[in-house]
Amino acid sequence: MQEIQGQLFTQSTILQDLKELGIESGMTLMVHSSFKSLGSWVAGGPVAVILALEEALGETGTLVMPTHSNDLSDPEGWRNPPVPSEWWEEIREHMPPYDPHLTPLWFMGIIPELFRKQEGTMRSGHPHHSFAARGPKAASLIAGHALAFGLGENSPLARLYDAEGWILLLGVGHGNNTSIHLAEYRAEFSGKKQIPNKAPLLVDGVKQWVEFPDLELNSDDFVVIGEAFETETKQVRRGKVAGAEAILVPQRALVDYAVGWMERNR
């Protein structure tokens, strides 16, 4: 069997990379990540990444990750792939209700999947757009996550904005930057549309399909917005963490910029 090639990364080397990028003790930090982008070999795997992030933030810092589960939805709206209409009622009957301790993530990656299970991590109660957080500000960030408009004013994104938090894009780009959705709720632009959503929830101990309103979200222009923000404001820090391209962004400044960009261009 051929020997593994490439560079070895460890919790210590990742920690040093995070510090060089600008991550400091006491920050409130939202992380979007792709573990496979970090390189051929990380000693300790995704656990080492989580521990390095927590060490960089220290005891006074708070780590946040999106833990979305959009598949916990009405099968009538599934498109990728669609399922036969004769399955819909049976799926609705047997789909388990959202459980912050049990419900897995949907296409969010191994790092947040493990982080949500770590002792001391808290996860918000939204069945589609939950967030997990660990640290002194965790409870205030995830408390009161409303069903309606789940990435809007009563969401952890808005609380991160209030806390003047930061965003780390670790091996991913602005197309994965959930915080720009907050700008969609705040901006006024043509074509802004409200839609109904549904999810199975426990209500007084009984599973019910609960309907709630949301916006029809669109991330197609997020990369353009992120690049324009970087070019015009010079507030983005770029570097390498292990083998991954890493981007550190002040969330409040980005959201404010994105509101104006959407109002001018959408």
Score class of each variant (00 low, 15 high):
7 Q>H: 08
7 Q>T: 06
12 S>L: 10
12 S>G: 10
20 E>H: 08
25 S>C: 15
25 S>L: 15
25 S>I: 14
27 M>N: 14
29 L>W: 12
29 L>E: 14
32 H>S: 12
34 S>N: 14
37 S>I: 07
37 S>W: 10
37 S>Y: 12
37 S>T: 13
37 S>D: 13
39 G>C: 06
40 S>R: 10
40 S>Y: 10
42 V>H: 04
44 G>R: 04
46 P>T: 11
46 P>R: 08
46 P>K: 12
49 V>G: 04
49 V>C: 08
50 I>K: 02
51 L>G: 07
58 G>C: 13
61 G>I: 02
61 G>H: 04
64 V>Y: 05
71 D>I: 00
73 S>G: 01
77 G>R: 04
78 W>N: 00
78 W>K: 00
81 P>D: 05
81 P>C: 04
83 V>M: 01
84 P>I: 04
85 S>H: 04
85 S>T: 05
87 W>V: 01
95 M>H: 00
98 Y>K: 02
98 Y>V: 00
101 H>Q: 10
102 L>K: 09
103 T>G: 08
105 L>A: 10
106 W>N: 07
106 W>A: 08
106 W>K: 06
113 E>D: 15
118 Q>N: 12
122 M>P: 08
123 R>M: 13
124 S>Y: 11
125 G>A: 13
127 P>N: 13
129 H>W: 14
130 S>I: 13
132 A>T: 12
134 R>V: 08
139 A>S: 15
141 L>V: 10
142 I>T: 06
144 G>D: 12
144 G>F: 10
145 H>P: 03
152 G>R: 00
154 N>C: 07
155 S>W: 01
155 S>D: 05
156 P>H: 08
157 L>S: 06
157 L>T: 04
159 R>L: 08
159 R>P: 02
159 R>N: 08
159 R>I: 03
159 R>T: 05
161 Y>S: 04
162 D>E: 15
167 I>E: 04
174 H>P: 01
175 G>C: 00
176 N>A: 11
176 N>R: 09
176 N>H: 13
179 S>A: 11
183 A>G: 00
185 Y>N: 00
186 R>Y: 08
187 A>L: 01
193 K>N: 03
195 I>M: 08
199 A>L: 01
199 A>M: 01
201 L>A: 07
202 L>P: 00
203 V>F: 07
204 D>A: 06
205 G>H: 04
205 G>C: 09
212 F>L: 04
214 D>G: 07
224 V>Q: 15
225 I>T: 02
229 F>V: 05
230 E>L: 05
230 E>C: 06
230 E>N: 11
231 T>E: 15
231 T>Q: 12
231 T>S: 12
236 V>R: 05
239 G>E: 02
243 G>I: 00
251 Q>W: 11
252 R>P: 09
254 L>Q: 09
259 V>I: 14
260 G>L: 11
261 W>Q: 05
261 W>P: 01
